[in-house]
Design a protein around this nucleic acid. Sequence first.
DNA 1: AGTTAGATCGGCT
DNA 2: GCCGATCTAACTC
Length: 202
Amino acid sequence: MDWKLVLRLERDFFARYTPVVAKELIGNVLVRAIDGVIMSGRIVEAEAYRGSEDPASHAYRGMTKRNAVMFGEAGHSYVYFTYGNHHLLNFTTETEGTPGAVLIRALEPIEGVREMLRNRGITDVGEASNGPGKLTKAMLIDLHLNAEDIVTSPRLYVRKVRRRDFKVRSTSRIGIGEGGEYDWRYYMEDNPFVSKGKLSQG
DNA sequence: AGTTAGATCGGCT
DNA sequence: GCCGATCTAACTC
C-alpha cells in the first residue's frame, strides 16, 4: 500500500487549541508501520497538556532539550521515557512558540493484534494497549520515533475516521500533581479499552 | 477486588 | 541525587 494515499489527519488538525485536539482525536486510528507490518488501533483515551498555563505539562518551566518539540510545529510526535521503563507517546499541537501536546493513553486494537500481543508478551487483547506505556510497547514506539512528523511519516500517523457514533467524556488527568482543575482527559464512553486510572469512568 | 512495592534510567536542579 | 503524564507482581482480604 502507498502510505501517501491514506487519508490521514493533516497539520491543521493539530495546529489548534490543545484540549480540542485531544477531544477530537478520540475515534481516529493510530497507525504504526514497521517492516511492512501494520499495527493500528482506535484512539479511545487522550489527555491535553498545554504550556504556560498548565503546571502538569513538561513545557511549564520552559524549553529544554527533551521537551523542545512541544514548542515547535504541530503534528509531530513527542516521545519521552519515564519511570525507567516506559515510553509515552504524544502529538504536538498549537502554533510554533506555544507549547502543547496530546498524550495518547489508550487504543482499541484493530490491525496487527497478533504482533502487538507478541511485543507485549501477553495473550489477553484487553490488556494489549489500555494504557499509555502499554500501547507504546505493543507498537514498538520508543525514543527513536521522537520528533517524527506524523503528517508525512510512513512509520507513524493517524488515519482519519469520519464516523463519530460514540460519546466523548472528560475528567481531570491521571497521574499528575498540580493541574487537576482542568478536565483535559478525554475518553470514549463505554469503551472497554479505556485505561484503569484512579478517576477512570467519572 | 483492592493495595503496595519495586523496577529502572533520562532529565532536570 | 531525586523524581516521574507507569506497569506488574505479589500480597492481603
